[in-house]
Design a protein around this nucleic acid. Structure first.
Lengths: 230, 230
DNA sequence: GTTTGTGAAGGATTTCACAGCA
DNA sequence: TGCTGTGAAATCCTTCACAAAC
């Protein structure tokens, strides 16, 4: 899966050029619905069908895919299995990724116990905390390490991803430590705006922000005018 | 937001017109960093300072805010407390929002126990499941209800928000039930692409998708060329 | 007949740059 | 002087529409 796919047939338009970030963010969605079509027994799927599932226009799906290659056949659509394999390869999902979790409080423990990561190739292989009273203790099948061992551990275990699950007040120092350790991809559960270099990707998981931007669209309900629920 | 806001004072540019959705999604971020500036004792803040915290351009912040009013003073910036109050009001964060949780498995229980919602005004006031063996049992201080009581409960408790924490296979039927109950805002933890009417907002919380779109940017590491971890 | 891949058009969002005000 | 608010410009993203391929 490294870089020797020089075997482009003479008609490949843009092998895997610089696609807009927003397009890259949609690719995992395509992978997901392709898995559904596959599970349902579909062999081929059209951009129309994909669009219906994802509530997007077929044109957008075709355009998105065209940044990475020509995966379809006119008149037929896309081979479900092959497109899934291609997209997984493009995204780097055909390998294992090791992650370091920082913060083993309530949330951190839930993340370690979360069964959704491993089947997708994401392995939490180390856990860190500042609290001396938990360092050395076992969480799941991991032993909690002191934060100042991040760099050493990242190198030793081939960790490429950081997961931040510490309180807001400690988050920036954890970002700094992860960046210092050479981490370039961070999944952030802390409710803060991280300060990181431009070459470091951070994605936030933040249910409160999600809720807060939906309430804008909720009109003050008729039945609440004088209802007492405060 | 019907159509009779003809009462603009002569200097109000766009009272609270139709701002792009992407702008609305950034407003909660502004609220959050304003709270930080406030906690740090700042009285005034400039778009430059906000931009530095959020890694955005000052121009974008000013433009975003201009969709909703004129909150700043030239030469001085924005009053931290006042801007926070205004934005919270615009977003509807100055009130309580009741939510219904569907799915009281591992994840659902973690959501009920999550301490981050209440301080922000989001209250999970009812929990539902299909599994007869958990219906009637207590989770936190809630009693689990059968799913077919959603509509009744939504009306009785003034619930405006649905939170979906069921397995992927059951998710669409839960969306359908929530929509049928008149819910217009859904926080979705299930790894599926929901099919809902256009007037229903859904925001996904999906750490796996977040990870999957970051791996694209992680180059195959030098030290991994021949490392054995897959 | 069907559906892809893609230039071109259209629309949306961001940034620029500066007048106006404190 | 310092900073906002905002038209205009620039950039980015989506949709259109159709030739080409099956």
């Amino acid at each position: 899966m490294t870089t020797d796919f020089t075997s482009d047939p003479p008609d490949v338009p843009r092998p895997s050029a610089n696609a807009p970030e927003v397009v890259v963010q949609r690719l995992p969605l395509y992978v997901r619905v392709l898995a559904q079509f596959d599970a349902a027994g579909s062999e081929m799927v059209s951009s129309e069908q994909l669009g219906a599932q994802l509530q997007m226009t077929p044109a957008q799906i075709r355009k998105d895919l065209s940044y990475f290659g020509r995966f379809g056949k006119q008149g037929r659509g896309y081979n479900v299995k092959r497109l899934a394999i291609e997209l997984r390869s493009i995204l780097g999902l055909d390998r294992q990724w090791n992650a370091a979790l920082v913060g083993v409080g309530r949330l951190g423990r839930a993340i370690i116990a979360y069964p959704g990561f491993r089947p997708e190739g994401f392995y939490v292989v180390a856990a860190f905390d500042i609290d001396p009273s938990v360092i050395g203790s076992a969480v799941g099948d991991l032993t909690v390490r002191p934060i100042d061992q991040i760099k050493k551990t990242v190198d030793e275990l081939g960790i490429r991803i950081g997961i931040v699950a510490v309180p807001a007040g400690n988050a920036q120092s954890v970002f700094d430590a992860l960046v210092e350790a050479g981490i370039k991809a961070i999944l952030n559960y802390a409710p803060v705006a991280p300060q990181v270099p431009l070459d470091v990707k951070v994605r936030g998981v933040d249910p409160v922000l999600a809720l807060q931007s939906m309430t804008y669209f909720l009109k003050p309900h008729a039945t609440e005018e004088s209802a007492a629920n405060g």
